[in-house]
Design a protein around this nucleic acid. Sequence first.
DNA 1: TTTATCCCTATTTTT
DNA 2: TAGGGATAAA
Length: 768
Amino acid sequence: MTEQATELLIGLNQAQQDAVTTTEGPVLVVAGPGSGKTRVLTHRIAYLIREQGVSPDQILAVTFTNKAAREMRDRVDNLVPHSAANGLVMGTFHSLGVRILRQNPGLVSEHLNLLPNFVIYDSGDQQELVKRAIIAANLDPKQLQPRRMQARISAAKSVLQTPDEFASTVETYDDELVLRIYREYERGLRNANAVDFDDLLGLPIRLFDMVPTLLERYQQRFRYIMVDEYQDTNRVQYVIVSALAAYYRNLFVVGDPDQSIYAWRHADIRNILDFEKDYPDAKQIHLELNYRSTKRIVQAADRVIRENEQRIERTIRTENEEGELISLRELPDQNAEASFIVNEIRRLMTSQGYRGDDIAIMYRTTAQSRVLEESFRVSDVPYRIVGGLRFYERKEVKDLLAVLRLLHNSYDRMAFERVIDNLPLGHGFGPKAMEAVQDWAQEQHSTAIDACIATVPSINADPDQSKPSLSAPARRAAEKIGAVFARLRVSAETSTLAELFDDIIEQTGYRDLFADGTEEDLQRWANIQELRSDLEQYDFMEPGKALGAWLEQVALVADVDNMAEDARGQVTLITLHSAKGLEFPVVFIAGVEDGLLPISRAVEAEPFDPAPMEEERRLFYVGITRAKKLLYLTFAGNRLSYGRYQMGVRSRFLESIPADAVRSVTRHGFRGGGADRMAGKKSGSLASRVTGDWIASSERVVTVPPPPSLPLPDYAVGQHVFHPKFGEGTIDEVIARNDDQELAVTFTRHGKKRLMASLARLDVLGES
DNA sequence: TTTATCCCTATTTTT
DNA sequence: TAGGGATAAA
């Protein structure tokens, strides 16, 4: 072995070295959390390039997120100097799928009936399209729940069933309905010259079936294939991998069955469990030594995951130090939970030397992030939220995105309707006009946008030219739309994306929607500016090409992908699902309650199907194993959901964590929602003792020195108050809640709101 | 055609 | 609680 080779292996344990140097043939690496699998993958790629002289463009590495791909590429670049890694193909399955489709526009239009400028529908568009498909199939969207239908269609697609193939599996009446909707849905997609996420995986396979030489080309090209997070691949992804790897058989997959958390997205755990059946000559390597977490954290995780029945028996271990006890805290409600977390973080930052970006808060449902965010907002601790409402799914962003999409692909019906419904440009253009325009488009084999353009006299002077039949006011609206889009089309061909964007905002009247200058408007306007600077990144490209490239990138980014590498001291708020693959010195898991973690559906399903419950447990396991040094688990005795308080019960998963690993903290005495305000008095003061401290079972917990906070005034009906967000208002009602007050306030600008006095930060302006 | 108001239902996770 | 959809009124 050369010196360079040994250099690449320095610091790797034996198993890791095996994984790096076994380059030929099928290899399965079962990698526990924190066992250095990313290191193995990057070093292996570097090893192939540097030691085996493999050309980077013969290597394909598939990751779960674009972010993971990017990080891996950076790390490989550091290991392989002088850009020797250029040409490496790295990305998600979905981006690989698009890549294949985009590289073969001729075959795609010949065999798949798609124009080269096809667009990718996101889940929102899909949902809407499904709803239309239900209506088109003469069914009732209220009875059939578009969500569920979409899930059924997606399930069919993820096992590569076309509507015709699905038809042969129909058993129940419900299946029958799904089939009808599925057919309409496919038709809608193709009419809009669009594909959905599942198509990005399925269509390449269909293309390979129809054009075997195409598959051969890719098989020859990708001599070494690596797949990360293999436990979360589904059937289609499995087929893609098997097809591509069939020639060279140099397939290297890494995964951990215990971290499989995407069965609901049709991930099929059999892919990893049956790997050795598929490749009897496969070498199996286990990475079990954890380099990430303290002994206590690793042991707790091990105890938790052990309870699962459907599992290959194994143990994770670590040689790291014992570490701190795990903190377990019950709080009265979700507000107290949130402020406890914020206060504790503040303490860690001020007296323990942690930085904000060392810390993450994880939760099961995105809804939980709101309360947490509220608490951060009123604190001085910087934070960022990953997941939840994604940037590109915000209303104002989607509205403008729709214009861009429509300019790129005028068949995009969903985009057209969105423009009509949401932009001032669409005013006066109602359902009747919409129908007329769609009919015309159908007849003329044209598009709705061109129907509008056809009504513009200055563009279309020919009186014999057919035009959509519209009432006078509708015609005026259509003319305006047509004129604006005709201009924008020119702009799209000649200007940079940022200039085009400015034109759009001006000409569609979108700017006028933000003239009020309320705080919400400002935020939304800021989002629009952010969108604009996103577009600026593509200014280097040719005007005609940039739009397509940018739209593609938008469709495929996940929220984690946008997580800045340098978090600039911000605390991360993230769902447990999105947290997979990440690590933080300090982790809080919030809402560790039955009904939330495990989620209620899993609890209900358990008697007849234990699988969802096991997946919940794995999710908890994933969360625990993100923590390097400190782990906090919190749950609330009462939690607001559906607008009412529900009793919370500590999660059954907590029973598996040994008591001596936990600083179990129970509440002493009674204190309501204003707990933190009371704790706000100097620690050790009479007040804090009287109202009760947190008492640990195994050790005394020092009360957190809390943030300075002012005592709240007593609010009364009729007072004029000022709110930082809602402005001026009058108090209508005051309800005592423990030692807090719930206020009903009518604001001049924002109408009636109900607020908790402790959070609202109201200033009293005077009595009325 | 647009806007206001009321009622209903739904929260799991995401490429 | 909020967001969507239906209904009524202007």
